[in-house]
Amino acid sequence: MANALHSQRRTFHNRLASTPARFMIGRDRRGSWIVQDREGLVGGLFRNEAAALHFAAEECNHNPADICHAPEGAVLDLDGFAPTSSNLH
């Protein structure tokens, strides 16, 4: 019984650890800070890292597991936020 409970906890923990962060923070080609959510629905361009982190923290109710930095050398952009339909007003 104890082994089954331990196995369930380990499986649950592994699922949580493998869940991607909701927000990624990094820099664009010009060095500005960008926040992007994993679905491309929320984010923005920020003057500094502190402002980017503050925005992401507010959006995810200050859950640090929902925020990660882009890998070293990665360049982010806001192309995912460009309107894809001319019907937007």
Rank of each mutant, 00 (worst) to 15 (best):
N3G: 09
N87G: 01
G43D: 08
D28P: 05
T84M: 12
S85L: 00
D28G: 11
W33D: 00
P20H: 00
M1R: 06
H6A: 13
G73V: 05
L78F: 02
A82S: 06
R9Y: 15
V35R: 08
S86F: 12
G73N: 13
P20D: 04
N3K: 07
R10D: 09
L76N: 04
N87R: 15
A74F: 03
G31A: 07
R38L: 02
W33T: 01
D79C: 00
G73M: 07
R29T: 12
M24A: 09
G73S: 03
P71D: 15
P71C: 04
R9T: 07
E49V: 13
P71M: 15
V35N: 02
L78E: 03
G73E: 13
H89A: 13
D28T: 00
D37F: 02
A57V: 00
S18G: 02
A70D: 00
P64E: 03
G31E: 04
L76V: 01
A56Q: 08
G80L: 14
H62W: 10
D66M: 03
N61H: 08
G44F: 07
P71S: 10
C60A: 05
R47G: 00
N3S: 09
R27Q: 14
E49G: 15
G43W: 12
C68I: 09
M24G: 01
D28W: 11
A65C: 05
H62P: 03
R30D: 10
F46Q: 02
F12D: 14
N3D: 12
L41S: 12
C60I: 00
D79Q: 08
L41M: 06
F81K: 04
E72P: 12
P20N: 05
D77W: 03
A56N: 06
H6W: 05
A4E: 11
S86V: 14
A57N: 02
I25A: 06
E59S: 10
R38Y: 02
V75Y: 01
L53R: 13
T11F: 14
R47Q: 06
R30W: 14
E59G: 00
E49Q: 15
R27S: 08
E58K: 07
L41F: 00
S85K: 01
L78N: 03
N61V: 09
D37Y: 02
G80T: 04
A65H: 15
A82R: 14
L16G: 05
H69Q: 14
M24W: 11
R29W: 12
A82W: 04
A21Y: 05
A21W: 05
A21L: 09
D28M: 12
Q36L: 13
L76Y: 01
L78A: 06
A82E: 04
L76K: 00
V75M: 14
M24C: 11
N3Y: 10
R30V: 11
P71E: 13
R29N: 05
M24T: 14
S7E: 13
H54Y: 14
T19P: 02
R30Y: 10
E49W: 06
